[in-house]
Amino acid sequence: MAAAESPSTALRRRDLCSRGIRLAGKMRADVVDLLDAYVEQQGLDASASVAAVEGVPLAAVERWDEQTGTQRLLENLAAYRAFRALLAQMLEEQREQLGEADVGLGRALAAVLLQVSAFAYHLEELLRLESRGIPGEEEEEDGPPPPPRLSLFEQKLRGLGVLRELAQWAVRSVRDLRQLTKPSPATGAAPGLAESP
């Protein structure tokens, strides 16, 4: 059983969680809009099934309800860091390939990148709140290894895969954060991260 949580920490966590839920909800709406615009702009088939793309964190998870709070936060953080790098690369490719042909899509991409960065920082805040070390800060500097050079169509499919997974992750993050705010059955108080169901 984790040490009983001080009321101020519980209050701070509840506040961070509810703000995180709103941020993730907004991010999901923006990503879904961006996905529609991306599919149209890139001439893709919205229903095309895209094989898992190397380096894109999958939102799919088994026995989701059995995860601890720390697991949830750590998995979320790793995912959004990866998305930050992937979106930055998409933005670079967008400029390279389209120049100023479609400024709108570039702006929408940059806006989502900002939200992903903000959400990653938010998750780090939650982990700091639980005095848990922020993983992989050092690796963060060099960031994930640059992915292999893809053909243009593969780049388009990867972009589709990135945005689809990000949209799923946003829903998962909302659910994860709700789990963190749920009172644990025993004490009735919000569970310490380690033990939340």
């Binding site: 099934s49 939102a59 799919a60 998870v61 088994e62 989701w64 799923q168 992750w169 998962r172």
Partner: peptide, 9 residues
Amino acid sequence: YLQLFSTVK
């Protein structure tokens, strides 16, 4: 459901 939040159809 064996998996949640999956993008696979």
